[in-house]
């Protein structure tokens, strides 16, 4: 429908809406996160879901204990290389459409433990992350902001066209390869389909 006509109609008190808008409206207001936390960020995540910060205002208070019922994975904390295969497997077991929030410095880059031999330097090397929140740990307000950002993102997704949601494209996989423990590092060390190492810069 033409945007101008829609505007004109709404001035006359006629509210028009597409099926896609209804679909996205329902989806973005009932994002169910997966109930898991990896480190101290999880405490902030719990605080955000409790009465003081009240994530329920955004329809996201229903933390599901099974990935089969979850829409959103909040990677809350340090991802160690030991833990990563489980994280990726849980992500694979979630039905589409699914989203990921990388919460805190550790989940987005390794944070203060970046130099550790067993710490993954960002969960976005293996699974596609929708929203990154910096902070160590981020306050519940930051998590709520991430939720609002994710809601905006869901609202922009379409059933068809260039901004098509991933789950409608049968060619895009819903599973990502689970890395194995190699001799020195995870094999493969990153998933090239979601992350590429930055090009080396020449020293001046």
């Amino acid at each position: 429908m033409d945007e101008g006509l829609k505007n004109e109609l709404s001035k006359q008190g006629v509210f028009t809406v597409t099926m896609q808008d209804v679909y996205n409206w329902g989806r973005k207001n009932s994002v169910w996160p997966l109930n898991f936390g990896l480190a101290c960020c999880a405490i902030e995540m719990i605080a955000a879901s409790m009465a003081r910060y009240d994530l329920a205002r955004f329809g996201a208070e229903v933390f599901r204990p099974s990935p089969r019922q979850a829409d959103l994975m909040i990677v809350a904390g340090t991802v160690t290389k030991k833990m990563l295969p489980q994280v990726v497997r849980l992500y694979n077991q979630m039905p589409e459409p699914k989203y990921v929030i990388a919460m805190g410095a550790c989940a987005i880059s390794g944070g203060p433990f970046k130099q550790g031999y067993n710490v993954l330097k960002g969960v976005d090397r293996f699974i596609p992350v929708d929203v990154h929140i910096p902070g160590c740990p981020p306050r519940p307000e930051a998590l709520i902001h991430a939720f609002l950002t994710l809601q905006e993102k869901i609202d922009r997704q379409t059933v068809s066209g260039p901004n098509q949601a991933r789950n409608f494209n049968a060619d895009l996989p819903s599973e990502f390869p689970i890395p194995q423990f190699g001799e020195h590092d995870l094999v493969p060390p990153y998933n090239p389909s979601v992350w590429q190492p930055p090009a080396p810069t020449k020293a001046a």
């Binding site: 099974s66 694979n92 077991q93 589409e96 409608f168 599973e175 689970i178």
Partner: peptide
Amino acid sequence: LISPRKPGADKQATYECGLE
């Protein structure tokens, strides 16, 4: 009609807290 099925070995596997 609209949402294609995407089955997979991991997705279909028994859920055991992320472990095999």
